[in-house]
């Protein structure tokens, strides 16, 4: 199973004592962007995973503590956000300019 779970929604069933969750949404022109491709890059900029945002523009990754970059690619443009994640919930927003 390598297909991404449904994006967005609740974190029910996710153990935030062990999982490092990186989640957020993609925005453009004051509105969330559904169907955007969002990839998680490690500290060396290497690809780690990719998901497609939900109808509400949301994405979610299960990573590990450390430095990460979230990059979004969509028909309306690109955006990226660097973050430092810890065990538990890490939230971020990617703005497409």
């Amino acid at each position: 199973m390598c297909g991404a779970p449904k994006q967005g929604g609740t974190l029910a069933g996710v153990d935030l004592n062990t999982q490092t969750v990186i989640q957020g949404s993609v925005w453009h022109d004051g509105a969330p962007v559904p169907g955007a491709y969002v990839r998680l890059l490690d500290s060396t900029d290497e690809f780690t995973a990719e998901v497609v945002t939900s109808p509400e523009g949301e994405f979610r990754f299960f990573a590990a503590p450390g430095q990460w970059k979230v990059r979004s690619l969509s028909p309306v443009g690109k955006g990226e956000q660097v973050l430092s994640a810890d065990v538990g919930l890490n939230e971020t927003t990617v703005a497409i300019s």
């Binding site: 199973m1 390598c2 991404a4 779970p5 996710v14 153990d15 062990t18 999982q19 490092t20 990186i22 998680l40 490690d42 060396t44 290497e46 690809f47 780690t48 995973a49 990719e50 998901v51 979610r60 990754f61 299960f62 990573a63 590990a64």
Partner: peptide, 19 residues
Amino acid sequence: RSPDEFSGKILAPAHLPQE
């Protein structure tokens, strides 16, 4: 796989829970 899976830092691609 990604470098972090290769090194054992994570066990699955990061769109999946790491259990």
